[in-house]
Design a protein around this nucleic acid. Structure first.
Lengths: 357, 357
DNA sequence: CTGAAAGCGCTTACAG
DNA sequence: CTGAAAGCGCTTACAG
């Protein structure tokens, strides 16, 4: 069942069938109807690979993630999927399970499969070379990472500002000795959050020393940090964990030790995972709208794709821009690559220190 | 950068380059090395669409889901992804957001994009026609649904057996009046769980009447069911919710009303969502290993693909089977399409009725 | 508005 | 073991 069969049945050339099916307009109305009717009767669907090969377009967006585990990635994919659907694009997902060499081949294999790529790489700039190798040929948007290559767009979460906002909140709530449970050394988000903690602490409480405990973004390391705090000679007023899983681990260890949260010690996190609102006490945290991050990254990529397409269209004859090219004026929003601001979610665990100051 | 460039640089024909890159073996060792070196130098990657068009293989598995929201789907995709990676296959994901008409076009559009399809459709047999239309051309594995078409494979969770096991546990724990919070009418899983509850109740407690409350698989309906139970003239000993979210909603409403769980009333769920181990009391439930479901569905699809490929290979000349064809003997496991058995996870909320019987 | 034909970049019998 | 050539199923200038 190919375009030839449709052409034969409709008594036209394959060129006319192609033009009709692609809505090129320059087809006589009567012929158009006939072709559409025949194609429908025959349940004809164009063969995607053939179409991609000749049109140089795959109608597919690639998403390359470090992993598919957990809510973060499913939310991200959900946001990307939503935008892709709006534009009738398909989604090819790929993960590299922490193996950078696999990511290289995964990225290379995208050639001829996707029109553009969304790449998430929390390991700071680890994959810069491959991205820069690909990006002239394939539009790429980096999520939560940066690249020196000017043609590589990127979109990130304002972890630095978010961490500052949390410290500001804790200080405003009367806390002074604020400990921080850091994330993995090689993690970009973790770094930015630590940097935000340090900056805000130095700015708001100039005399106060910083207090940083190591962590690995998992519950166990939060638990360990909590136990370290319990046995410290002087306990902090508040603990700010670089993510919610560690905050929960810490929370559990404090509660186990008989401490009251937040009366004895406040605990806050970062991410607003679903669990945050179910634990007792409920967790104060910074919410990051991951689906929104995915959706915005996808839109950013689409602008690149449309710009490129428009540039190609224009080359042959007229260099003047065609404003109605895709009726997607919302996509040329200049603020679209601004970092996403996390939102403070106040719940029980970070409440005001008993009676103020 | 095409295969021609590589051929020219290596001073061989494109056919030889193709054979080398595809590991066909019948290439002189010296030539093979030269081609590989040149291809590597040139950073050549075959164009996927061109390859697909001529080889009739896309090296891609399609996953069509009702939605991408939530842990269930991310776990499923994770399991599929793992198997796909092992076989160096790509993953095209698609969701239809509850719109059956969209699913039809989504499925059609898979032509030429994927070698096989994993389709999840909890709305009982709603999409039978489209699946049956496609399946002669495209191998399909249905997840948690069945089809009359014999060529459509399917894999499901043994919700019926799982629900029975939960009732058996509750009865063995001394509970007699066991209420059930049902799921959506049109949901296949929900139906099977209700059926399991009814069967086990009739079998184990012949005199006891069944007690079914409506629900919608969300927390709110579980909460409503809980309130209905509280105001009932005689409270049940235990409530078995058709999924965890409803169990949690019910749990919260009972605790709010001052009841003790499980002392006053036991509450159990189904699914073992992450929250289940964090609520108080922790939730007794049936665990369904969704990633395993995805992985097994993918393996089942792969056997179909390999069988078909083998059949094609065999047709031209020799009908004898080639046992070493893919060295994937684990894939021809005859038990591979057996339903996945959920596992009882005993936690606090479903504990033994005070002192037995 | 329509058709004949070239071409997209590969793979694969077919000959040698 | 190797190459010339057909063919996969489309799209798209190019003519008319």
């Amino acid at each position: 069942m190919t375009i030839k069969d449709v052409a034969r049945a409709a008594q036209v050339s394959v060129a006319t069938v192609s033009r009709t099916l692609n809505g090129h307009g320059n087809v006589a109305e009567e012929v158009r109807r006939r072709v559409l009717a025949v194609a429908n009767d025959l349940r004809y669907t164009p063969h995607a690979a053939a179409r991609s090969l000749s049109s140089r377009r795959t109608q597919t967006l690639g998403v390359v993630l470090p992993d598919l585990h957990g809510e973060f990635f499913s939310e991200l994919v959900r946001g990307v999927d939503q935008v892709a659907r709006e534009h009738r694009l398909h989604l090819l997902v790929s993960s590299y399970h922490g193996r950078p060499d696999e990511q290289v081949s995964a990225l290379r294999a995208m050639r001829g499969r996707v029109d553009g790529l969304l790449v998430m790489s929390p390991y700071a700039a680890a994959h810069a070379s491959i991205v820069e190798e690909l990006s002239p040929a394939l539009p790429i948007v980096l999520i939560n990472a940066q690249s020196d290559a000017p043609e590589v767009l990127s979109l990130s979460v304002d972890n630095y500002g978010g961490a500052q906002a949390m410290v500001e909140y804790l200080v405003a709530s009367g806390h002074r000795r604020i400990a921080f449970i850091a994330g993995p050394e090689d993690n970009f988000d973790a770094h930015e959050r630590l940097r935000g903690y340090r900056e805000a602490l130095a700015r708001l409480l100039p005399g106060e020393p910083e207090w940083v405990l190591p962590g690995a973004f998992d519950e166990a390391s939060g638990h360990a940090a909590g136990q370290a705090l319990i046995s410290a000679s002087q306990r902090p007023d508040a603990v700010f964990a670089a993510n919610d899983m560690m905050a929960l681990g810490c929370l559990f260890s404090l509660v186990q030790a008989g401490l009251k949260v937040p009366a004895d010690i406040a605990v806050t996190g970062f991410d607003d995972i679903p669990l945050a609102r179910y634990v007792h006490p409920t967790l104060t945290t910074m919410r990051v709208n991951i689906a929104e991050l995915g959706a915005r990254a996808a839109r950013l990529l689409l602008t690149r794709l449309n710009v490129d397409a428009a540039a190609q269209d224009a080359q042959p004859i007229e260099p003047e821009p065609n404003p109605q090219h895709h009726n997607q004026s919302d996509l040329v929003n200049p603020r679209q690559n601004e970092p996403l601001r996390p939102e403070l979610i106040v719940r029980e665990s970070g409440a005001r220190r008993g009676g103020g100051a």
